[in-house]
């Protein structure tokens, strides 16, 4: 049994990513600006709101959104972490996954508006697990979903409230989100389908 690496980074920082760049660092910055504004708008100034990032990259994205919201509206929206490993439906089939921490803001989740933040929305299973995990922690007033990339192919009736970019993909492709916090630089790369 090898000690599993914490969620494998999707790229090697020393090597220029192969494949097609969908979002540049500037694009990602603009997209996050927009989502932050949308959150403020849709939640009417984000009172009683917390952001919960889903490990690994959702955590950094939640942090960046919180920072922007503070900058744009001088509103303090706490960001936390929601680990969903123990709620996954594929534990039986996948190699051992390490657990991540779940760090809730001091307010907890009860009666809060919780915005779940993740990098890629695909089948929707991760969000399903996140909802279950969330409801074992308490009873939020409302749950929303913010996502950097929606690549389609949903397997569950789940829809994001805030979408950075819709990217049509085939199932054989892979969407890799690189973030400075983990990968040295920001980028969204589409790889995998030789036919493209």
């Amino acid at each position: 049994m090898a000690r599993p690496a914490r969620s494998a980074p999707s790229g090697d920082p020393d090597r220029p990513p192969e494949g097609k760049q969908i979002l540049s660092p500037d694009d990602i910055g603009r997209v996050l600006d927009r989502i932050a504004h949308q959150i403020l708008e849709k939640t009417k100034g984000a009172p009683d709101t917390i952001l919960l990032g889903i490990p690994t990259r959702g955590v950094a994205l939640a942090g960046r959104l919180a920072e922007r919201i503070r900058r744009f509206a001088d509103v303090d929206v706490p960001a936390g972490t929601l680990d969903i490993t123990l709620y996954r439906d594929d534990l039986r089939r996948r190699a051992l996954r390490p657990l991540g921490p779940t760090d809730l803001p001091p307010s907890g989740v009860d009666d809060q508006r919780v915005v779940l933040v993740d990098d890629v929305l695909y089948s929707g299973r991760t969000v399903r697990a996140a909802l279950n995990a969330l409801y074992d922690l308490g009873r939020p007033a409302q749950v929303q979903l913010a996502i950097l990339v929606d690549r389609g192919h949903r397997e569950l009736p789940i829809r994001a409230d805030y979408v950075g970019k819709n990217i049509p993909t085939s199932r054989s492709e892979n969407v890799a989100v690189h973030l400075t916090e983990y990968d040295g630089s920001d980028a969204v790369i589409l790889t995998g389908d030789e036919g493209r």
Binding site: N132, D136, L137
Partner: peptide, 12 residues
């Protein structure tokens, strides 16, 4: 993961 939670049980 379990301490101090509303539901001290995981579906794992």
């Amino acid at each position: 993961a379990v301490t101090g939670r509303e539901v001290p049980k995981l579906p794992t």
